[in-house]
Amino acid sequence: MATLIETNDLSITFGGHTAVDSVSISVPEKHFKSIIGPNGAGKTTFFNLLSGQLAPTKGKVFYRGNDITHFSPTKRTREGIGRSFQITNVFPNLTVLENVRLAVQSQAGIRYQMLFHYKKYRHFEEKAIDWLRLVLLDEKKDSLASNLAHGEKRKLEIAMLLALETEVLLLDEPTAGMSLEEVPAILEVIKRIKNQGNRTIILIEHKMDMILDLSDSVMVLFNGRLLADGSPEEIMKNETVQSAYLGGHYE
């Protein structure tokens, strides 16, 4: 299958600290890749490099064979790389519906229309409600995002990402900080998207057991370096991964 996202020798240094150290991966189309690694391994930093929040010190990012290393986050979203954030990142004083509606509006390419009332685009709202239904949040559509519980904000975050309908979904710990009862619902959503089979998904997750059966491949980051990259079975058997995860003294 054709390669969709590729990184080449990707590195970023903050002061003297190299957070991501020459990571080269390639993700084929419609692939489900998980990134695991202990805290501070550089997983989110790596994501920020993929989505454009940070610019690498060295190396390149390719999307569909084009160099997108210097694209802004806005441009990357339009190209087809959408992301969700680990730290909840929504519009707090807008309603839940409006949060998603903005994403739908962006997806539809209505960006500078200033003469018509937004209600003219009623189908945006209907579409937004569909997305909210998918993440089981449609009953909360009229409350302000700031009044949601943490788990609900995470769901909203995912709905906003889905509404962008990007080719690539970068999910940064979608279940972080959720109560245990809420996790299955989110997993269900992710499974459903995967089963639709038209998206490429890259996921950061701590809960290894939960992603193993979902993932096509797993990559392990440790101290910014790519430790291993392979099928879930290979990763489970890999000894360096085990020591990195269990012992934490790999060096």
Binding site: S72, P73, T74, G82, F91, P92, L94, L102, S106, L164
Partner: peptide, 14 residues
């Protein structure tokens, strides 16, 4: 949306 969260608005593609 920009008033609420500028960075998020940018990553929605605006």
């Amino acid at each position: 949306a920009i008033r609420e969260n500028e960075q998020r608005t940018a990553s929605l593609g605006f």
